[in-house]
Nucleic acid binder design. Structure first.
Lengths: 140, 140
DNA sequence: CTACATCCTGTAGCAACTACGGATTCAAGC
DNA sequence: GCTTGAATCCGTAGTTGCTACAGGATGTAG
């Protein structure tokens, strides 16, 4: 019988180490474990988590995907696809394309907003006018 | 003594009427009242709300400001400023400028993201390659 | 008077985390 | 071996800005 892991220096990581290595914060890791985005960690005799390099890989994957603007749900899909058959590339591409469309819509919306706000704000000299043009615009 | 308002056709509005006029949904109105974004409505004898035109103005103001990308907290500030002295224009402009900066940052970030995703996705032919370039990119 | 629409309150849910409190447990120094 | 301070544990509540119920009380038209 293998005796329970109690301490190990290199290889398995504590929650804090993993957080530092992956560049996320600790509660985030526990959260991901809870919602099943990463597999459950092994535990020491005293219930402290021990993560291996596979956890680290996965965590970095998630962080990157989130940074790329994929939703949690999309990340889940990507993980399933990347874990699966080698020819799942089409599925991955589909998720990416959908996401790209969403991002472009967001950009378009924000640009309209920027223009509107910039124009309205430009009318405002910042001094006491009879009525602030910005407020007027909001009141219509 | 004025007897309690029990019914009135024009002027005071029911929650549903106000929602229709302002283009927001009913629960949103109750929510705004609860968090103090709009003043508490008058009530009929049977606790139904009655809103006046000032509520409508305020509600439209809020919706416009939210549409312009102001946060709830910023809206609160704008309301305070617009209710206050006539020379609060500078304050209003400051909020607008801050918001404009935030919007521009969001746009810049999304554009970087778009480029990254578009480039990575373009590498992906969608067929079974040795390894999907998109997944590879996420794994680094 | 009977339907049916609308309203009421309070609470729970969404995304995606973050922050807290109070209890262990670890690691290092002496 | 003991003490101290950092790290970890768990569960829960908060964040933002709403939205969606459930289950009951009114309003209104025919």
């Amino acid at each position: 019988m293998a005796k329970p892991i109690t301490s190990a220096r290199s290889g398995p990581h504590t929650t804090g180490e993993l957080a530092a290595l992956a560049g996320v914060n600790i509660e985030n890791i526990r959260y991901f474990e809870r919602i099943g985005l990463i597999p459950k960690a092994a535990r020491t005799a005293s219930r402290h988590r021990r993560f291996d390099t596979e956890h680290l890989r996965r965590l970095i994957f998630i962080r990157r995907a989130r940074d790329m603007g994929f939703s949690q749900d999309e990340v889940r899909t990507l993980i399933a696809l990347s874990d699966g058959r080698p020819n799942s590339c089409a599925g991955v591409k589909a998720v990416a394309e959908t996401n790209l469309r969403v991002i472009r819509e967001k950009i378009a919306r924000l640009k309209r907003l920027e223009r509107l706000l910039a124009e309205t704000s430009a009318k405002c000299a910042g001094n006491r006018t009879p009525a602030c043009p910005l407020i007027e615009a909001l009141l219509k």
